[in-house]
Amino acid sequence: MNLNELPLWLEILLSALLLLGGLFVLIGAIGLVRLPDFFTRLHAPTKASTLGLGAILLGSMVLVSVSHDGVSLHELLITLFLFITAPVSAHMMCRAALHQRLKIAPGTRNGEYQGLTLARQQERDSSRLP
């Protein structure tokens, strides 16, 4: 494949997709470092980075499809897979964090949420005990 033989509009589209992807991945990582507590940090990579990765995969799919004469479906599979699993991972991590009662940054709305859910959960658990 010669990257220079592509039509200009395609090149611009691909560059935009890849750049957008890279940007979101980077933003996700910066968020992971900069945000104040776990629950805010959770948002950065699971949302921004996943989106960024999706954009990169889309770009790669288009590029490979155009240059290799044939639709490349691998990337679609990976994207699909990521979009299914990322929320579940986030959910599981959040549960772990709630279980560990991690500190919440001041100013979080519904600050009592964590305690609330725990209380409710314990209530439910105790009602199930024989």
């Binding site: 897979f81 299914i84 699993t85 579940v88 959910h91 599981m92 549960r95 959960q121 314990q122 658990d125």
Partner: peptide, 23 residues
């Protein structure tokens, strides 16, 4: 020293895990 979580299953995980097996 934290006791283990009482709740064993996560419905979301269960559903998705089952979906991932064929994949």
């Amino acid at each position: 020293g934290r006791l283990w979580a009482r709740q064993r299953d996560s419905v979301i995980l269960n559903v998705i895990a089952q979906g991932i097996l064929p994949l």
